[in-house]
């Protein structure tokens, strides 16, 4: 599967293959515990973006392009903001103000608590994770030598 000459050495590739899932899991942990511990949507999103970038550095751009569906990523990124706004508007009709809470607040310090804040954290995590990765991807694609066309 990974027998390409692009990217870094076999050691780096093997370590990346195992660790990338752990990094993504850690990012998800930070995102869903955003209302309980330091961190949240933005911090966790950055961790997830770094996991993807790790793959890009270890395996090279061509493999990453085959591994990920960029059109899908773009669609998820745009729709996460749209869903964020829709949940915010739901707050107007159900909670009385834009971005207001309309879910049960739950027990203090439980994972399922704090109403809509975890929902917003997850949406922000998706948005930040994908867009940060795409920004670095685009910047990595610029080749300064072929600029003057």
């Amino acid at each position: 599967m990974m027998k390409t000459d692009k990217g870094m050495s076999i050691i780096v590739k093997t370590v990346t293959r195992i660790s990338v899932w752990l990094i993504i899991l850690y990012g998800i942990y930070i995102i869903v515990h955003g209302h309980l511990t330091p961190g949240g949507g933005f911090g966790g999103g950055v961790v997830i973006a770094l996991a993807f970038l790790n793959v890009m550095l270890a395996y090279g751009k061509e493999f990453t392009e085959k591994w990920l569906n960029f059109q899908l990523l773009h669609d998820i990124e745009s729709s996460s903001v749209t869903v964020f706004l829709v949940v915010g508007i739901l707050g107007i009709s159900l909670g009385g103000a834009f971005l207001a809470n309309f879910l049960s607040k739950g027990d203090l310090f439980e994972l399922y608590s704090a109403g809509v804040i975890p929902v917003f954290n997850i949406l922000i995590g998706i948005k930040v994770g994908i867009s940060l990765f795409l920004v670095v991807w685009l910047l990595a694609g610029i080749n300064p030598e072929e600029e003057d066309e």
Binding site: A97, L99, N101
Partner: peptide, 10 residues
């Protein structure tokens, strides 16, 4: 003639 105030997230 009036000043409207909106409290975000209530």
């Amino acid at each position: 003639k009036e000043t409207l105030i909106y409290n975000m997230s209530g």
